[in-house]
């Protein structure tokens, strides 16, 4: 079982992901360089957080044209698992692999804080070890995480159950006070229609060890392993 962590110029959570995935799952983890045009043998590709290409123009707008992105699109089209975290989520949106776009936070401030997210769908490869409705405590760290979709498209995405996590209170209430950035529908994580690509703004790799104050993030990586085992890999 092999995870790949994609490294763009400006990625800064790549080493954290590399460490956390290995520690949480015992699986093999390798870095994938943004220039790579040939990637093979991976079971799950992770696009980590950071400020790819300085986030110039828009977050993820330049990284989306990295050579490796063509391979990632192909990998995803073949059903490969792709997880985008924070900036990785933004890159996948820019690439059209996930719906929506991120506006600046409503507060116009960089939000670096613990958040609680309620798991709306535990049948995805990334959440199958969670209970439906389980509240995870995972931190966010971003300036552009204010999820937006035009109303009609949002209705379609909601209708297909693609919102996988929502910001909530610790008790699991999805209310405006629990929304750290203004995201429509308190959206914290979204999957593609097929379910094999997930983007989440909270950083599971920052909540994957007791010493960091919380281990909830391990559930995401372990779910992937569980899913891959179940699918015979």
């Amino acid at each position: 079982m092999r995870f790949g962590v994609v490294v763009f110029p400006g990625s800064n959570c790549d080493a954290d992901c590399y460490h956390a995935i290995g520690a949480a799952t015992g699986a093999r983890v390798e870095y994938v360089w943004h220039r790579d045009t040939k990637i093979s043998g991976f079971d799950c590709l992770v696009l980590p957080g950071g400020f790819s290409y300085g986030d110039y123009l828009r977050t993820g707008a330049i990284a989306r044209f990295s050579p490796v992105m063509r391979e990632i699109a192909r990998f995803a089209a073949d059903g490969g698992l792709v997880l985008g975290i924070c900036n990785g989520f933004q890159i996948l949106q820019e690439a059209g692999l996930l719906p929506g776009a991120m506006r600046k936070n409503e507060s116009l401030t960089f939000r670096c804080q613990w958040t609680w997210v309620r798991v709306e769908d535990n049948r995805t490869p990334f959440t199958l070890l969670c209970e439906k409705g389980q509240v995870l405590r995972i931190p966010i760290a971003h300036y552009e995480g204010n999820f937006y979709l035009p109303p009609e498209e949002l209705a379609e995405v909601e209708g297909r159950g693609q919102v996988v996590m929502r910001y909530s209170t610790p008790a699991g209430e999805v209310v405006p006070e629990a929304n750290p950035n203004g995201s429509l529908g308190n959206t914290a994580a979204v999957r593609n229609a097929a379910g094999n690509v997930l983007g989440m703004m909270p950083h599971p790799e920052r909540a994957a060890e007791g010493v960091l104050g919380c281990e909830d993030g391990r559930l995401i990586f372990r779910s992937v392993v569980e899913y891959l085992r179940g699918s015979g890999r």
Binding site: L57, A61, Q93
Partner: peptide, 8 residues
């Protein structure tokens, strides 16, 4: 392709 994000 690049300069504007058609969603926003």
């Amino acid at each position: 392709r690049l300069l504007a994000n058609p969603v926003l």
